[in-house]
Structures are given as C-alpha cells and as structure tokens.
C-alpha cells in the first residue's frame, strides 16, 4: 500500500518532468524553424542579377529569410557574401536574418542545448581560464564557503543567545522588539553597510549571510527553549538538578528539534541570499556566474547554473533535515 503510493508518486513526478521538458522543447523548437526561405519572382531575380549579385549569394540571402528589398539593398552596396561575412555577417549591417530574428525574439536555448552545456561544464567543473571564466565547481566552492562561514558564525552567536533569551522572559521582552525590527530587513540592504564598514567584498558577503541566517535560528532557539514542557522542568527540579545540568540534559534535547528546524530555515535563506549577493558583489560565485553568463548571452550555461543552484539548495536542505530527524522525538 505504502510502496504503491511511493511508486505512483515517482511515476507522476517523472511524468511531470517529461511534460515540462516537452513543453520546453516545443516552445524552443518551433522558433528555430520559423525561418522560411523567401521566394523571389523571376523579375526580382533579374533585377538582382543586373545589380551584379551572384546567383549563389542571392540563394543564401533568400534562404535566410531576407526580403527582396533587403537583398536589393545589399546588391546596391555592391558587396559580395564574402565581404559581408568578413565584416561580421548580415547582422552587422543591421539586417535581421531568420536565425537572428529567432534569437532576438526568445533566445531561449532548447533542453538539448542545456543538456550539452551541462555535459560540457560537468566534464571539467574546475577549469580556470582567467578571472571571468572559471568552472561551475569552482564557483560553487566559493559560494558554499561563504554560506558555510556566515552560517557557522550565525550558529555560534544565535544558539547561545537564543538559549539565554528563551531562559529569561525578561531578556525576551527586552530584545524581541529589536529582533522583530531587524528580521524583516532584506539582507541585501546590509550589503552597502557591510561594504562600507569592512571594505572587503569577500567578508561583506559572509557578513550578509551571517545577518540573514541569524534571525530564524535566534527566534527558533528562544522559542524552543521557552516552550520546554513544564512537566520536564519539574522533573529536573524534583531531582535537584543544577541549572547547567537542567540546560544540558533537559532543555537542550527538548528544544533540539526546534533549534535544528531554525538552522534549516536559515540555511535555505542563506542559499537564496548568496546568489543575489554575488550578483551584486561580482567577482566569483554561482550568483555572479549566472549574471556573467546572462551578460555574455550564454543562456544555456546560465540555465544550467540555475539548475545547479536548485540542486545544491536541495542537498543543503536535506542534510539539515536529517539532523532535525535525528534529534526529534515523539511525545
């Protein structure tokens, strides 16, 4: 029964994916074949030949979808196809050919193209051809390092602080207003502040991750600690446990699932934020990679990078999800 459902769900998932690929494929496939050769009438052919255009040149132009008027214009300039290609192709002269028209309209790469790009990128993920051209693996390494550092620093600060806030209703009341004000500020808003104060883009991006990671952990930790069941605390009290022992053997395990859920939320947000931050900061990292590929109109590569961002995010989430599972208990 249970397996039946899992298998059905898996099949359905695969089905949806294939549907998605099909829509994508059809959406991009049709565009490539909108180029229709323009039929020239015999009169028009005669005019062109009179202007001195070779028959083969004329064929090429018309097959690329140029109208008679456009071809005539070329003919009147007295250029051969070789001249034009030397000068950078028809587009350089301001003509939109069939191929270029398609590209300008959507420019969207087909699934096959992205797949090719993925294969190419993954076959050498750590290549290094200068500062603006590094493999996706290298980019990921930098992004993950920033996320890891920022997140780690946030854990070090947020968990103990959250513990204190959770234990002390007074601190809770005193600090919650600030937390509530700081929490909704977009972490990117801190970027200029960080850049101004730290003057180092690497450290600034780590700071931004730190800031965005800290709130969910702080709030979840203090909530988890404050909401430990009174019954459990009473047990510790009747056993005359010291404050430290109570914190360590009752409060910490009781709040652990909530604390790890906070970490999980933080890490997800951190991964969202790093892409945006790297787009702004530039240099290196997946966010910048996406931006750079967009600027270079390497759309296949950009889309591939977007998929990779999703997959890495999923892996991060699953890892933290495992921790939540390990530390959760059934009451």
């Amino acid at each position: 029964m249970k397996y039946d459902r899992i298998i059905t769900a898996a099949l359905l998932s695969v089905g949806f994916f294939l549907l998605f690929l099909a829509v994508w494929h059809i959406g991009t496939y049709q565009e490539e074949h909108t180029v229709e050769a323009v039929e020239l009438t015999s009169e028009q052919v005669a005019i062109l030949e009179e202007a001195g255009m070779s028959a083969s040149d004329k064929e090429t132009y018309s097959s690329q979808g140029l109208t008679f008027d456009q071809i005539n214009q070329i003919a009147s300039m007295g250029l051969t196809l070789d001249d034009i290609e030397m000068a950078g192709g028809l587009e350089a002269f301001g003509f939109t050919t069939g191929g270029a028209a398609e590209e300008a309209k959507t420019g969207f790469p087909s699934p096959a193209l992205v797949w090719e790009e993925a294969y190419y990128q993954l076959s050498d993920p750590f290549y290094d051809r200068g500062p603006n051209d590094k493999g996706i693996g290298t980019q990921l390494k930098y992004s993950l390092f920033r996320v890891g550092m920022g997140f780690f620093l946030a854990v070090i600060v947020a968990v103990p602080l959250g513990f204190l806030i959770g234990m002390s209703p007074l601190l809770n009341m005193a600090l919650m207003p600030y937390i509530q004000i700081l929490k909704p500020i977009s972490p990117l808003a801190w970027l200029p502040v960080a850049l101004f104060l730290i003057k180092d883009s690497e450290k600034a991006s780590i700071f931004v991750i730190f800031v965005c990671s800290i709130w969910p952990m702080l709030i979840n930790t203090s909530f988890g600690v404050a909401n430990v069941k009174n019954d459990w605390l009473n047990i510790a009290k009747t056993l005359e446990c010291s404050k430290f022992r109570t914190a360590y053997s009752v409060i910490l395990p009781a709040a652990a699932p909530t604390i790890f859920t906070g970490m999980r939320i933080s890490l997800s947000i951190a991964w969202l934020v790093i892409v945006a931050a790297e787009m702004v900061i530039g240099g290196i990292g997946v966010g910048y990679f996406v931006w750079n590929e967009w600027n270079g109109l390497n759309l296949a590569s950009m889309i591939f990078a977007i998929f990779i961002i999703g997959i890495v995010g999923l892996c991060l989430d699953l890892t933290l999800g495992q921790f939540v599972k390990i530390f959760s208990y059934e009451d």
Binding site: D231, N234, K237, T238, P253, Y329, E330
Partner: peptide, 19 residues
C-alpha cells in the same frame, strides 16, 4: 520552600523525558 530529592513525585501524566 522548593522541590528536593527528599520528595519523589510520580506525576499524574507520567512525565517521562521522551528522548
């Protein structure tokens, strides 16, 4: 004045630590 090890308690809802 407070709980102590002199007074063992069996709670109405058993109150075991679930982990």
């Amino acid at each position: 004045s407070g709980p102590s090890l002199d007074k063992a308690v069996v709670f109405q809802n058993h109150s075991l630590l679930p982990w």
